[in-house]
Design a protein around this nucleic acid. Structure first.
Lengths: 342, 342
DNA sequence: TTGTAGGCGTTATCAG
DNA sequence: CTGATAACGCCTACAA
């Protein structure tokens, strides 16, 4: 029976060749100190023996795991899946491995995940903070102080200097609302996300900015509070249509809720966008599958992942001075649900 | 400056308490050999010092990483995200950590990921095979022979005995098609996935089974080949409607393509389900967001993840005899796109 | 250019 | 019940 390749070590290779393990180690790490001839010999042998270096052992010795930890609320949201793709790209390039975890927006779980990643001795953590908002800035600061670099993306705590890459939610909301204004929509409602979260407060502000700029009033009865779920969109439509004044356009802080609104409106016989123009936020892929297709706001997810990772890598290489908050510019994706003019 | 908690070891704790590292190790592992008093003392001290055990070191010593590797084509597909959720649940319970990777259905990348996981010394790999089908059964056999247990789920290679949890695609397709038959649909087309893949061959067979059972002919002009993408649904609709005979129902091997068909049909003024009844496969969440909602086939994803993981854990505990292929039963989710009768 | 020795942080074995 | 010691697989001064 052949020896398990998982248990072949540099010593095995060394003894097969009558060399010493240290030489094998050097050869496999392309150390120029070892002669071309032996290097080739060793590398060939390693391949022949199906050798798999033990990264745990190397990490222990080097004090560096070449592992990155990433925590997101949920990987099946396109937003995060796409950021993750960006992270993967850059990590691959740099020869790092990435450990993805889901907090399910639960800050208790987030704390446990962080501790788990620390035990694994990841070199750094990329984090989109759980949206229940249970962890204070102090907590994150203590993690950083304990020696594990943490960089934030998407949802980043305010109140202390930490590297972060976020998008300008206020501007995204402003652009979305302004887009409806430009299409000639005059009564614009807003499905508003939980106001204890910065990102949703910012989206609400952006909505107000656009209305004010257009000389329109911000009307109480046009604001409905939601969480980012589909059913909330249906409920929001019911709420709006139970009131006297009916909007002719809706800017939703969430694509899911926007989809719910569209479905409920269509069931009531409304034509979209003619009777009701709709635009969401996040540019989830399903927006393209709907009838009509749903307009939305793109959040530069790939570049968010890439930028975060590149900064973390720079940080790990010694440049730990860059504590800035990078703000990316969102863009409106016009689709059928809001296209009234050519 | 406080010492980084990442660099606090059992030796530090030991010397603070005037004990030996081995005692600390035992205490932290709840070894009954150590007295209750010292155990409590040590655990309190460890907490106070914010100690984080180094899993790399423990893994090296124990020859076991308590890490599971998981490879899926893409984490943002609901199918896989949901399987992953099931995997996470069971792994958490067992105190295992999980490393998720995406192959993007590229078998070269899959091979590299497997090698990466082996270097990380994961205890086992849960794998849904890349759909480009580039890796032979022999390859997987060699991984298993090399000492890394591999269990398959979803897309599992045939041709050798390996633990696998899959669903009965043929039956799922049969049920979906039969559902259309039961709704009184008489001309049923099929959007057919790549036939070099077992799962899509099976779905095609199930479609045929149902037609034959209903005494309907399998008509060439009602079969359109697709890959699981949205645009293919639109193209498929165009293809079908360019022919003389028009179907009144469609069973699509993919939800994405089904969504494309629906959109294209609605743009042509067709009413769904009245003029065209549609059912997809996979029960992606967006199926609930469409107008009308899209019927589909549920694949027991959570239980697929849970079962796979439980078996892997049993395997790791020494029961490596269970090489069977477990086949889960799919179920039809009836929604608006195919509901013609009450 | 290659070999030797020591240690990274744990845990398991053996003594005491 | 606790202490000492060795070893897991690798890397890196230092020596030869």
């Amino acid at each position: 029976m052949k020896k398990d390749s998982a248990s072949i070590t540099i010593h095995d290779i060394a003894s097969e060749l009558g060399l010493h393990a240290s030489t094998v180690s050097r050869a496999l790490n392309d150390n120029p100190a070892v002669s071309k001839k032996t290097r080739a010999l060793i590398q060939a042998k390693a391949k022949a023996m199906n050798y798999r270096p033990n990264r745990m052992a190397a990490a222990l010795r080097k004090g560096r795991s070449d592992l990155l930890g990433v925590i997101v609320p949920a990987i099946d949201r396109h937003f995060f899946a796409s950021v993750i793709r960006g992270i993967e790209e850059e990590a691959d390039k740099a020869g790092l491995h990435v450990m993805f975890c889901q907090s399910y927006d639960d800050s208790d779980r987030e704390r446990k995940l962080i501790e788990g990643l620390q035990r694994l001795r990841v070199d750094g953590i990329l984090l989109s903070v759980a949206k229940d908002g249970g962890n204070e800035p102090d907590f994150y600061q203590s993690i950083i102080d304990s020696g594990t670099p943490v960089h934030f993306f998407d949802n980043a705590p305010r109140g202390f200097d930490a590297a972060a890459v976020v998008i300008d939610d206020r501007r995204g909301a402003y652009l979305a609302t302004k887009h409806l204004v430009n299409q000639g929509v005059s009564a614009i409602a807003h499905l508003r996300g939980p106001q204890h979260l910065d990102i949703y407060r910012d989206r609400f502000k952006g909505y107000q900015d656009a209305l004010l700029e257009a000389g329109m009033a911000v009307r109480e009865e046009f604001i409905v509070d939601i969480t980012s779920h589909f059913d909330n969109g249906r409920k929001a439509f019911a709420a709006l249509w139970s009131r006297d004044a009916k909007p002719t356009g809706i800017f939703s802080a969430s694509d899911y809720s926007a989809a719910g609104v569209m479905q409920a409106a269509q069931e009531q016989g409304l034509k979209i966008p003619r009777d009701l123009a709709v635009i969401g936020f996040a540019n989830e892929p399903f927006t393209d599958l709907m009838t009509p297709t749903l307009s939305s706001v793109d959040q530069q997810t790939l570049s968010m992942g890439r930028k975060s990772t590149r900064r973390m890598i720079a940080h790990l290489k010694g440049d730990d001075s860059d504590n800035q908050r990078i703000i990316l510019e969102p863009s409106v994706i016009e689709r059928g649900s809001s296209r009234l003019k050519q």
